[in-house]
Design a protein around this nucleic acid. Structure first.
Lengths: 143, 143
DNA sequence: GCGCAAAACGTTATATTGTATCTTTTCGTG
DNA sequence: CACGAAAAGATACAATATAACGTTTTGCGC
């Protein structure tokens, strides 16, 4: 799926929800989509500054906040970075494989893991709201 | 298990490994053990400053680096905080349930989740080295 | 179209978390 | 005790994130 197609899908999704994917927000999303790797907020900020007057951090953080709420991007806690989501249509367990060699990230969506984790949390009396699962390792290509 | 007992256990473990649990490192560990909740590096720093001349951040970060390497503490990625480990004797999958209401953290060690996750990573060609699993939710007491 | 309220955005300043680098001290070993 | 390695001290700074506040834009009911 091309960058354009993904942007269009995002536009459609937001329209259907009455959420406003403003040009600024779309720009942040485009940068993430085209990067094909996780970007830090300040990397995004630097990208956005290209050929324009510089923006301030809150601009990017606010756009990210919106995109996260819409499920269009994910936050990688171990990297303090953000990556666009490959299947934003429906809720899904977002689990990440992070290659410490090349920096690429693969999103997997293993329902079994999510279910087992939810189960374990419930058994401990926890009402789970967010699940963070990130595996650091070395990808096939880097070995 | 009391704070003293846990400190003694840590001392024993380090001695057995030829690792030096210096007074400074033991102090950081004690602070974490007595806190009974995750602490940020700068919170630890503040604790250590009590009644002494202030220390610099690298002091704490270096002690934490050692304690992490020894498996005596864990790092909570979603909180940027640290917590002492309850079973540092042997390697174990460290999964955390984090209560967003009271801030308490429960460490569970579900081998099934770890195995399933390792399996999923392997299937994607990943050689996993570290697994981060954190569930944010509300604990029994807070509901 | 007009006026209004909410949402989005701009701007400045600052808080929080984490490192690089160099020097000094401590500790175990020969 | 002398030596080398490990640890700790000290200074400065980098990277990440948010608070606070004012301005502009937008959607909406009239």
């Amino acid at each position: 799926m091309s960058a354009e197609e993904r942007l269009e899908r995002a536009t459609r999704l937001c329209a259907g929800r009455g959420a406003r994917l403003t040009p600024q927000r779309a720009r942040v999303l485009r940068i993430l989509i085209e990067a094909e790797r996780p970007l830090g907020a300040y990397e995004i900020l630097a990208e956005m500054a290209e050929g324009q007057r510089a923006l301030a951090p809150p601009t990017v953080y606010r756009a990210l906040e919106f995109l996260l709420a819409q499920g269009l991007v994910h936050r990688l806690e171990t990297l303090n970075a953000f990556i666009d989501c490959r299947h934003p249509e429906r809720p899904h367990p977002a689990q990440f494989l992070i290659c410490s060699a090349c920096g690429r990230v693969v999103e997997i969506d293993d329902e079994a893991i999510a279910a087992r984790l939810l189960d374990a949390a419930t058994q401990s009396g926890f009402a789970a709201s967010r699940k963070v699962v990130e595996v650091i390792g070395v990808c096939e290509g880097c070995r």
